[in-house]
């Protein structure tokens, strides 16, 4: 490339370059594909198991779960357990294959990052009966207290989300109050020192319950266990 006569003109070994890149690329591609094929069923199984464990945790007494998709109009269709996307609810069934309730996912903005939670809804009690955080990257020691604070978690052992007379909306929307000021069963008691995250969690459940529970409450019979 340079015109200097003293230097040997650099030769670009085209053929060895092709040979190397193509063969290395092929081998690498093969490696990746085989690793993917080998691990895919295991990863799939792990994901389903993790989801199932979360569902059983928020629905006390449940032994098995089944995934359903509910569309905007409220039509319920069973879907395979590995399904992803909008509108999924997870029904939990006890040892006698009776419906315990539905696990519903909600998400919203926490103190620093998006928080995803799963809560259990019982048709019988018309209440939220369980709660857990699926994903949160909030400040350790502060925001993560919504996952560990026993007093806060007690809020979701029986949080009233009963429907109003017309069956189209909640009788009382879920409300957030400061720690120690809970008087009604539809209120969520906050955590002092983690006010923002606990309020965010209460709000995301309030919002999700307001849309989901009127939609599914009338369709209890359609959530059937697997044959």
């Amino acid at each position: 490339m340079s015109g200097t006569p003293h230097l040997e003109a650099p030769t670009t070994p085209v053929w060895p370059m092709y040979r190397t890149l193509v063969s290395v690329g092929l081998v690498c591609g093969l490696l990746i594909v085989s690793a993917y094929e080998l691990t895919r069923p295991i990863i799939q199984r792990n994901k389903i198991a993790a989801r199932q464990a979360a569902v059983l945790q928020v629905l006390p007494g449940a032994h098995a779960s089944r995934t359903f998709r509910v569309d905007e109009a409220g039509a319920v269709t069973p879907v395979p357990p590995e399904s992803e996307g909008e509108g999924l609810v997870f029904a939990g069934f006890d040892a006698q294959r009776r419906l315990v309730g539905l696990a519903i996912e909600a998400q919203g903005m926490g103190y620093q990052d998006v928080v995803r939670v799963l809560y259990g809804y019982s048709f019988e009690q018309q209440a939220v009966i369980g709660f857990r955080v699926l994903e949160s990257r909030d400040t350790p020691g502060l925001g993560d207290r919504v996952e560990t604070d026993p007093a806060f978690l007690r809020n979701f052992e029986c949080l009233d989300v009963s429907l109003g007379a017309d069956g189209k909306a909640l009788a009382h929307p879920v409300e957030f109050v400061k720690q120690g000021q809970k008087v009604s069963p539809w209120q969520v008691d906050g955590i002092t020192g983690a006010t923002i995250t606990s309020r965010a969690v209460a709000l995301m459940i309030a919002r999700s319950a307001a849309t989901w529970i009127p939609r599914v409450a009338a369709r209890r019979a359609e959530f059937r266990p697997e044959e």
Partner: peptide, 22 residues
């Protein structure tokens, strides 16, 4: 070539870790 090889092994590790623990 080196990067290609390294990226391959990293991808394999990535799948392996997912399979071991989500």
């Amino acid at each position: 070539t080196f990067i290609l090889l390294i990226a391959t092994f990293v991808t394999v590790v990535d799948y392996a870790i997912q399979a071991i623990s989500l």
